[in-house]
Amino acid sequence: MSGETHLYLSLNELRALMRRTYEALYHHGYDFAVMARSCLWLEAHGLDGIGLIIRSLPDLETPAREIKLSEPTPNHFLLEGYGRCLIPFINASTDLAIAGAQESGFGQIDILNVFGRLNVFAALKKTARLNLYSAAIWYDATEARTHILWLQSSQNLPDYFILNEVHQGPWGKSGLRFLCSTEAEVVKENVRRVLPENTSPHKTAMELEKAYAHALENGISVSKNTYAQLNKIADRLLVPSTDASRRGAGE
């Protein structure tokens, strides 16, 4: 059992909590079930999904999100995120690239001016299930580091690389490129433009898988403060109990 400052949540508990949190934030305006699963997957694979949410909360709490979509080519989409958190629209955005890959063998999105880019992780998992190959590349200007998630084979998890180098590319200082293809070589060619040969991953697919197995077995340690913070948001969904509402439970 955990100490006083932390508690262990099962994967289901975390997913349920995140579903309610996103539902409380956006009602049914976004696909809250997938958003919750994305957070769960990050956390369960040892990639601090909860921390990402907590750091993003000031933005997530701010409604009125706008995204501008343009389409330079039929399978290349350009999105302007206006400095907002990627979480609410990452899944619908990567759908565009996935559709491109399924239709013509290759699809790509470049999202500009966003943060919380590690949330793209779930999209790579999805492409694996669809027998696609994929990668996500972004440059973090505050750390001056380049991040690459690369799904290299039929394995169901990507390798995660972090380079201490500047690779701004067309996605700029705070953007993200996500690409996927039916051909492994096509993705590899794109990734190799940024990632030198023989670079060791920051986390290998196997390490991510081990982290997940550990979380599945033992649950996820979450600070009680964080747990309370998320529950405070999720609890906005709860409706006060009255005599009338008790009748609504069958009394």
Binding site: Y30, D31, A33, D95, L96, A99
Partner: peptide
């Protein structure tokens, strides 16, 4: 157009 385009522009319907 694709379903992806539709749900991108109507994210409330993705689920």
């Amino acid at each position: 157009l694709t379903t992806a385009r539709f749900v991108f522009e109507n994210p409330q319907h993705r689920y």
